[in-house]
Simulated scan of single mutants.
Amino acid sequence: MVTDADYDNSAAVPGVTDLSAGWTADAKAFRDGMGARAQLGLPYGATAREKLDLFLPEAPPKGLTVFVHGGYWRSRHRHDWSHFAAGALARGDAVAMPSYTLAPEARISRITLQIAQAVTMLAEQVPEGPIRLAGHSAGGHLVARMLCADPMLTESVTERLAHVLSISPVSDLRPLLDLSMNEDLQLTPEEASLESPILCKRVHDVPVTVWVGGAELPAFLDQARWLSEEWDAPLVVDAGRHHFDVIEGLKDPDSPMMTSLFEGDGGR
């Protein structure tokens, strides 16, 4: 039987509160240092959290990387992660980070549509070059969902998709049905199935890499393995990394994570 403890990443990682506070401070310093190359709070929809930040490289962008944050669809904000744009920026991409409406105000199915809307808007903002999607935890779920039959991204967007990096994803939502977090998520068995990437009809033939920390909870190692197996996608188990420091590679343009995202894309 699945319990809350099986999916409680915060309880499993000592010092996560300090780590989170450090993220927020580093993210603000990064935004402040970007100056006019940080376009903040761009709306992609009508509601308060349907906004994104777009960070531009010094030269015209070679492409676009979109990072979707986690927080079990219930917490966090794009402003907590800005500094994780550094690796893709150094490789010449524009980097976008959207916020989205949180549960319980929005169901996961609505959040999925919001991310599709954000990616569509961003493809117009950065009209040339490949598009790469990366997401962590709940964000790993959301970027994987972009390859499913719904939400239908336009052909002009999907033909530019070069790689999807799903980091520590929740690929099967059915285990969450009996957890206390479902008081906020309000998942039904039907929605849990429809929103699970491993159960969806994948219609876009885009290279996918699944990445997970070797020191993560067994449930997250399972979730990553399930997606890797179902989608026949490479699985990278990052030795020694836990659920929160597994994304550190996003900051380094030469890290194995960034090399995978930019160079493991089938040559697109």
Rank of each mutant, 00 (worst) to 15 (best):
E183H: 10
T47C: 02
V16Y: 12
L177Q: 04
I111C: 06
E155V: 10
D93M: 09
R74M: 10
S10N: 14
E229N: 02
H242V: 01
L227R: 04
S255V: 01
P218T: 12
H83I: 15
E159P: 08
V236D: 13
L199H: 14
S10M: 10
H204N: 10
A144W: 00
E124I: 08
Y44S: 08
L113R: 15
D238N: 12
S260Q: 15
A138L: 04
Y72R: 05
E50Y: 09
D32T: 10
S166G: 05
V164E: 01
E229R: 05
E190T: 11
Q117L: 05
A86H: 07
L147E: 00
W211S: 01
E50H: 12
P60Y: 00
M152C: 07
T158A: 14
L54F: 01
D53A: 04
V212Q: 04
W81Q: 04
E216N: 10
F220Q: 00
F84M: 15
R225Y: 05
G264Y: 13
L250P: 08
W73I: 11
L56I: 06
D8C: 03
V95R: 09
L147C: 01
E124M: 12
R37P: 00
A48D: 15
F55S: 07
L176V: 11
Y7M: 04
G266I: 14
L235I: 05
G15D: 04
Y44C: 04
M181S: 10
L89P: 07
V246C: 03
V210Y: 08
G15A: 10
L52T: 14
R160M: 03
S156N: 15
G240T: 13
E58D: 02
A85K: 08
N182W: 08
G135W: 11
R78P: 00
K201H: 11
S75C: 05
L235E: 09
A96I: 10
K51E: 14
L52S: 09
P218G: 08
L40A: 08
A12D: 08
T259P: 09
D53N: 11
R145M: 10
I108D: 02
D232Q: 13
A88P: 09
T158S: 15
A219N: 07
A29T: 10
M121L: 15
I247K: 03
L89Y: 13
W23P: 14
S193M: 13
D80W: 13
R31L: 03
V143D: 01
V208L: 14
D238S: 15
P43G: 02
